[in-house]
Design a binder for these strands. Structure first.
Length: 418
RNA sequence: GCCGGGAUAGGCUAGCUUGGUUAGACUAGGGGACUGUGGAUCCCCUGACUCGGGUUCAAAUCUCGGUCCCGGCCCCA
């Protein structure tokens, strides 16, 4: 028997229905915020992802040569494709540009809880604007998405990578070592960071002040301790968030979000219930378009780990009940089967989801199937009723039955649907 | 890439320590008992030892390796 490749999953109908349901909520939030959906290829020129990537990223890239010898990679994330698309086809659209996407991404990693080789991201990019409102808009949408899942136990943390980068440069860390230092700070590995910094000739009091900065963690009130432009900027972001009704955020200047292209505000959200892979959302402001041959344009974006946030909702005990069909049509006797077919067709053309027994089952078994299919109604087509052009309409949850004229059946069922 | 735990019908499992019947039960699925009423009962049927090598007269059971799953580390654009 052939199984799914490592780190991939099949989604059976019940699971798929649930995923579509939650996906729909995310789409609806994005639409609510004025974002419009895009779609980009699942694979791209490998160069798109290699351009700004370190060796660790490359190790996890699904890259291969196609039959024409082109270097191709399955997308490991969707920000770069979205910005490529912006540069290629949207650069002259009115600003700001608000786009979102949903799709699978691929990373060659060791699978574990909440981590798959094929996983799904829902993300958004707000392109062409560089204001505190921009960042607040994006963060508040991310918060709305998390809330749309009904999640209760989560944390949103906001930082500013510009503050850190600037301080690191000021205290004399060579540019090529910045990433290394940021990584230690992200993990709050101060015991490792200190000797590293000392080795670069950074003074002890400067190291302390740097650590103090990354330890600026807590409610929005800790922002009063952050000096300079970045401090002013974050204070404004937080004011706008508050105006948007988003107050449950924390400040954590130690949030670094990897080592890549982020330049200003960064944020992430986590669901502690998830264990090792608990980050459900991450984003920030960046400039990327100049890398792909466009002008330098400021953007703010984020992505939600769809599989993880779904997992988090499940762990909080949320259950999704599959919908089921409106009606299941069955024949009492074989000579009613053509009539049943006519009736199911009339229901379907009235927009009612309807199924019909096609296995020639006896009533008892057909009703059992209708029950398993979660049908709201069973439509029983028998000779007795047909004498008056009627059928029996059975409410599957209450068991109540009534005679309904065949021509009234669609409106009868549709009328009770709401 | 590293450490640890696992894998028996579609699902959940018994058997494994101590090798030896036709690998058992429950559930699900198909049919029937019940010739016009579901989630009940009974009967019949379908269906599994993750894969490959080794030890042995004999392997689900012992052993080695692969694959996949689970938890953690690393990484996480």
């Amino acid at each position: 028997m052939i199984q799914c490749p490592r780190g991939t999953r099949d989604f059976l109908p019940d699971e798929m229905e649930k995923r579509r349901f939650y996906e729909g909520r995310l789409r609806s939030v994005a639409g609510n915020f004025g974002f419009r959906e895009i779609e980009t290829p699942i694979f791209e020129d490998a160069e798109l992802f290699i351009l700004r990537s370190g060796p660790n990223v490359l190790k996890e890239l699904y890259a291969f040569k196609d039959k024409g010898g082109r270097d191709i990679a399955l997308r490991p994330e969707m920000t770069a494709p979205a910005i490529r698309m912006f540069v290629n086809g949207m650069a002259n659209e009115p600003k700001p540009i608000k786009i979102f996407y949903f799709g699978q991404c691929f990373r060659y990693e060791r699978p574990q809880s909440g981590r798959y080789r094929e996983f799904f991201q829902f993300g958004a990019e707000l392109i062409g604007s560089y204001t505190p409102e921009t960042d607040a808009e994006v963060i508040s949408m991310a918060a709305a998405m998390i809330k749309s899942f009904g999640l209760k136990n989560y944390k949103i943390r906001i930082g500013h990578i510009g503050v850190l980068r600037q301080r690191i440069a000021e205290i004399g860390v060579p540019k090529e070592n910045t990433a290394e230092v940021l990584q230690k700070l992200d993990k709050k590995l101060y015991e490792e960071a200190r000797p590293l910094l000392e080795g670069m000739g950074v003074a002890a009091e400067d190291i302390d002040s740097l650590f103090e900065l990354t330890e600026t963690v807590g409610g929005t009130e800790v922002l009063s301790k952050v000096p300079g432009e970045a401090g002013d900027y974050l204070r404004e972001v937080v004011s706008f968030l508050s105006a948007y009704g988003v107050d449950d955020v924390e400040i954590d200047l130690g949030v670094v979000r990897g080592l890549d292209y982020y330049t200003g505000m960064v944020f992430e959200a986590e669901a502690p219930a998830l264990g090792a892979e608990k980050q459900i959302c991450g984003g920030g402001s960046y400039t990327l378009s100049e890398l792909f041959g466009g002008e330098k344009v400021f953007s703010t974006g984020f992505a939600v780990g769809f599989d993880r946030i779904l997992l988090a909702a499940e762990k909080e005990g949320q259950a999704y009940e599959p919908k089921g069909i409106d009606a299941y049509v069955l024949s009492v006797t074989d000579d009613m089967r053509l009539k049943s077919a006519e009736i199911v067709a009339s229901l379907r053309s009235a927009g009612i989801s309807a199924d019909i027994d096609i296995m020639g089952r006896k009533m008892a078994k057909a009703l059992k199937y209708a029950s398993a299919a979660r049908a709201k109604y069973a439509v029983i087509v028998g000779a007795k009723e047909m004498e008056t052009g009627s059928v029996t309409l059975r409410d599957m949850s209450s068991g109540e039955q009534k005679l309904v004229k065949a021509e009234d059946l669609p409106s009868e069922i549709a009328g009770n649907r709401f």
